[in-house]
Each structure stands twice: as C-alpha cells, then as structure tokens.
C-alpha cells in the first residue's frame, strides 16, 4: 500500500506492505537509523518517535496509521544544526554510555516536556519508562531537569 506523511518536516510517500511497523519504514526505507530496534513489542522504548507530537513506540505502530501525520525522529528533533534542549542537556550531563537506547529516551523526554514543562521527579518516574541497560538513569534524571531549564530559558 502507499502511505504518505511528513517526517522531520519533509513529505514522504512510501510503498510498503500493510501492517509493516513504522520503525522498519523509518530505518530501512527512509534510512534514518537513529530510531532503534530493541524488542519489537513496545516494551523497551528504544524506538520512540513523535507522531503528531505524541511519543509513540514505532516498533508496534502499523505504518498505515501514519497516513497524513507529522512524524519526528531523533534526526529531526533539533532545528537545523541547533540541538534540541533535551540533546543539549544530554551533552551537558554526559549521559550516554553505550548510547543505543538514548534516542528513545530523548524522544520520550522531549514529548513529556511539551506537556509538563517543569516535571517533578515523580512526573519523570511516571512518564519516562524506557529501559536503559547501562542504567544511566541517574544522569538522565539530571539531564531532564536541565532540559526543562534550557527550554524555559529559550522561550
């Protein structure tokens, strides 16, 4: 089937089998490798992207539901060469270790900050539920608070 959507501000039309998880369209057809495969069951969050601003686990999101939607991946999180406040905070706090799950965490965080600009620790615990095996959670929490500061200062 044909599916059309905007991804990172660019219109795309893909020819793909119905029910193909959006993750594989993004990774293998559009060649955007920042969105990761972890489990294929929406259990780890490594594949988190934004669909119309909502955090979505793309491994379990059938491509046909992307029709007409605005999709953002880690590659499109920043604006031009400027990193998104979440990415800036991640750099300031030197968060990543292996780094594999980090795009998913950053996408989940960016979506949360749109709804909760100044999250409490409890907000973070309730909303950021991805899995990081290097267990960088301690620095991620600091980076999330820092990202909220950068974002509000930019307004």
């Amino acid at each position: 089937m044909q599916v059309s959507f905007n991804i990172n501000g660019t219109p795309q039309r893909v020819e793909v089998e119905e029910h193909t998880p959006l993750l594989w369209v993004i990774r293998d057809i559009l060649d955007l490798k920042g969105t990761k495969f972890g489990c294929g069951k929406a259990a780890c969050g490594a594949c988190t992207i934004h669909v119309d601003g909502e955090a979505v686990r793309s491994c379990s999101f059938p491509v046909q539901f992307a029709e007409g939607k605005n999709i953002t991946t880690i590659e499109g999180l920043g604006t031009g060469d400027a990193l998104h406040p979440v990415q800036q905070a991640w750099i300031e706090e030197v968060v990543p270790q292996c780094g594999y799950c980090q795009p998913g965490f950053m996408m989940a965080t960016a979506a949360m900050l749109e709804k909760i600009p100044n999250p409490t620790d409890e907000d973070i615990d309730n909303n950021i539920v991805n899995v990081c095996r290097c267990a960088t959670y301690y620095r991620m929490r600091k980076a999330i608070h820092r990202a909220a500061e950068i974002k509000s200062a930019n307004l």
Binding site: K33, I74, E75, L83, W90, V94, P96, Y100
Partner: peptide, 19 residues
Amino acid sequence: VPRVDLRDKVIGAPIFGMD
C-alpha cells in the same frame, strides 16, 4: 573530558552493528 562519542550518541548517528 567529555566522551569522544557524545555527540554521535546524542544525534542518533548510525554507529551500531544494527545500523
């Protein structure tokens, strides 16, 4: 010193075996 792979890992660069 900041990690040498910091930026790649924050922008989602295709650096892993899966990529």
